[in-house]
């Protein structure tokens, strides 16, 4: 258990415990995490009020368009983005690629996204995230998937949505599925909970915690297709703790203005008069894709097990 609870120093302090890993996500709550591909983008995101940035070589819309194997970004790019801003910097590794994760940890990144947006490196196993000092965020489509990731050590969860589409429909589907899964647990006795765990492939202990808390035991953001202030507020009203915006900002006509508007919409998600004000005059949003127009084997959300 020692390594699962972080490394103990001589003076009684402990680094990398699950409390500080999940705790950083708690500090991000009510905020917007933005995908950036250059230090300049990162500075714009910070200026707009992002609570963290995701350092990438290509935003999901470009990964989708260009195809090929998508991997962890070049460490030089990640370091240049870390140097450009004071807010936390996240980076993606491939599902199951624990060496990419080790490299990101060595770079001193603040959060690792084990992400379906990149090409999976393992079609059965996700990374055992407990031994790492750096926290992980993972995607989910429903409660079973969310609780499996938490059991593997994820300190934060996000809905998968369908990245790079600018279409919020899948993020809504996944957030509602998590909510419905948790609602279903209310009133179950332990035997029924064990049965439900079997049905949805969830670890019983994590599911019992969801039942007790009436929510996931870690912070839960929305991701995958959020392109407008209204999209961000919609996800917040569905009960998520904050939002990731990927291609939606820097594929839009006026990134700074749109980024600021999405930040304001995430704080004032339940105030339609503020949403009306910040939604006005933003210029063109990203083009966007209809989900049925995407060939089934190109859907990113299906990656992850």
């Amino acid at each position: 258990m020692a390594e699962r609870n972080g490394a103990r120093d001589g003076n009684g302090s402990v680094k990398g415990s699950f409390k500080v890993k999940a705790g950083l996500a708690q500090m991000l709550k009510g905020g917007v995490i933005m995908d950036v591909v250059t230090p300049e983008h990162a500075r714009i995101a910070q200026e707009a009020g992002a609570c963290a940035v995701m350092a990438l070589e290509r935003v999901p819309a470009d990964i989708r368009r260009e195809g090929g194997v998508a991997r962890m970004s070049d460490p030089d790019l990640i370091k240049s983005i870390m140097a450009a801003v004071t807010i936390p910097v996240m980076a993606k590794c491939r599902i199951g690629h624990f060496v990419e994760a080790q490299i990101l940890e060595a770079l001193g990144i603040d959060y690792i996204d084990e992400s379906e947006v990149l090409t999976p490196a393992d079609e059965e196993n996700h990374i055992d995230k407990h031994p790492f000092k750096v926290p992980f965020v993972c995607g989910c489509r429903d409660l079973g998937e969310a609780t499996r990731r938490i059991a593997e050590g994820a300190a934060m969860i996000r809905t998968k949505g369908e990245a790079g589409t600018g279409n919020v429909v899948e993020a809504v589907r996944h957030a509602r599925a998590v909510n419905a899964g948790i609602r279903k647990l209310q009133g179950m006795n332990h035997a029924e909970l064990v049965h439900e765990a079997k049905q949805i492939g969830a670890p019983v202990e994590v599911l019992a915690e969801c039942q007790k808390l009436g929510r996931l035991p870690v912070v839960n953001f929305a991701a995958g297709g959020i392109a407008t202030p209204a999209d961000a507020a919609l996800m917040m009203q569905l009960g998520v703790d904050g939002v990731f915006v990927g291609s939606g900002i820097f594929k839009a006509e006026d990134p700074l203005k749109r980024a600021k508007a999405i930040v304001a919409a995430t704080t004032y998600f339940d105030k339609p008069e503020v949403l009306a004000e910040v939604s006005a005059g933003l210029g063109k949003a990203m083009q966007g894709l209809e989900i049925p127009a995407i060939p089934k084997d190109e859907l990113l959300a299906a990656r992850g097990w």
């Binding site: 950083l24 001193g108 959060y111």
Partner: peptide, 13 residues
């Protein structure tokens, strides 16, 4: 700001 270092340096004591 972040005077104790980045997230991997976060600690309990």
């Amino acid at each position: 700001r972040n005077g104790y270092g980045r997230q991997v340096e976060s600690f309990e004591s």
